[in-house]
Computed example of a mutant assay.
Amino acid sequence: MTPLVDVYVGLGSNLEDPIAQVRLALEALGTLPLTERVAASRLYVSRPLGPQDQPDFINAVAHLRTRLSPLALLDQLQALEQRHGRVRRRHWGPRTLDLDLLLYGDECLELPRLRVPHPEMTARSFVLLPLAELSPQLQLPDGRPVAALASALATSDEIEVLPE
């Protein structure tokens, strides 16, 4: 049997009740085939990365353990986005749900459909802060500690924890 792999998925939404979208997606991640949800970060509010003519985003990170291959997991994540009504109209535009495979174990992948670790994650506070909250001892495959990367971006005022 394929061994379990620790993976991290970034979640974001800024349309159609984004808090509910992210919470429902976090629950759904635990129901993916051959996958269990280990933990999830708190919810964060962040300004849009691209065009500013859209609402703020709700973000989180989930820690999963899966037996799915990276591409099989990507297919499941994209199917979940579709079930949430994801429509890709413009790059960095508004969306009901965005799921990004951030880390797949210690693997480094450069495939036509998937790059892992996520190529933009080290520059995004809305990824690093919830990831460091979730797994403070985590290191990227190149050995860089996530907590140190997150603290370098933590002074930014473009992200805050959503009050509970």
Score class of each variant (00 low, 15 high):
residue 113 R to Q: 15
residue 72 A to W: 00
residue 70 P to C: 08
residue 86 R to S: 11
residue 116 V to G: 07
residue 50 G to C: 03
residue 87 V to Q: 15
residue 95 R to E: 13
residue 98 D to Y: 09
residue 1 M to H: 10
residue 132 A to E: 05
residue 121 M to K: 03
residue 2 T to H: 04
residue 51 P to D: 13
residue 31 T to W: 01
residue 43 L to V: 13
residue 111 L to R: 14
residue 55 P to V: 00
residue 76 Q to L: 01
residue 150 A to M: 06
residue 164 E to Q: 09
residue 153 L to M: 03
residue 90 R to W: 08
residue 162 L to I: 03
residue 164 E to K: 11
residue 3 P to L: 01
residue 78 Q to R: 15
residue 96 T to C: 05
residue 91 H to A: 11
residue 28 A to I: 09
residue 117 P to F: 10
residue 157 D to F: 03
residue 135 S to W: 13
residue 54 Q to S: 12
residue 46 S to A: 13
residue 117 P to W: 09
residue 64 L to H: 14
residue 103 L to Y: 12
residue 110 E to P: 00
residue 57 F to G: 12
residue 93 G to I: 06
residue 5 V to A: 11
residue 95 R to D: 13
residue 78 Q to N: 08
residue 25 A to P: 04
residue 57 F to H: 06
residue 134 L to A: 10
residue 147 A to L: 14
residue 83 R to N: 08
residue 106 D to E: 15
residue 139 Q to F: 01
residue 91 H to T: 10
residue 4 L to K: 07
residue 56 D to L: 05
residue 66 T to W: 00
residue 134 L to F: 02
residue 70 P to S: 15
residue 158 E to L: 12
residue 129 L to G: 05
residue 30 G to Q: 03
residue 151 S to I: 02
residue 135 S to I: 03
residue 48 P to I: 03
residue 27 E to W: 00
residue 13 S to E: 04
residue 90 R to F: 05
residue 5 V to R: 15
residue 80 L to N: 12
residue 123 A to F: 00
residue 132 A to C: 08
residue 137 Q to P: 03
residue 41 S to D: 08
residue 115 R to C: 11
residue 122 T to R: 14
residue 5 V to Q: 14
residue 134 L to R: 07
residue 104 Y to T: 05
residue 97 L to H: 07
residue 35 T to C: 07
residue 116 V to P: 03
residue 73 L to V: 14
residue 65 R to G: 15
residue 144 R to F: 09
residue 63 H to S: 14
residue 95 R to Y: 08
residue 114 L to C: 04
residue 34 L to N: 14
residue 41 S to T: 03
residue 147 A to K: 12
residue 2 T to W: 02
residue 143 G to K: 12
residue 28 A to K: 14
residue 126 F to H: 02
residue 108 C to D: 06
residue 1 M to T: 09
residue 45 V to D: 07
residue 41 S to A: 12
residue 49 L to C: 02
residue 158 E to S: 09
residue 8 Y to W: 15
residue 105 G to T: 09
residue 116 V to T: 06
residue 11 L to G: 02
residue 163 P to T: 08
residue 91 H to P: 02
residue 73 L to P: 12
residue 22 V to G: 02
residue 164 E to L: 09
residue 103 L to D: 06
residue 53 D to Y: 01
residue 145 P to E: 14
residue 35 T to H: 08
residue 30 G to K: 02
residue 52 Q to T: 02
residue 133 E to I: 01
residue 122 T to N: 05
residue 88 R to E: 04
residue 136 P to A: 04
residue 132 A to R: 10
residue 21 Q to W: 04
residue 77 L to K: 06
residue 145 P to M: 06
residue 37 R to N: 07
residue 70 P to M: 07
residue 37 R to V: 13
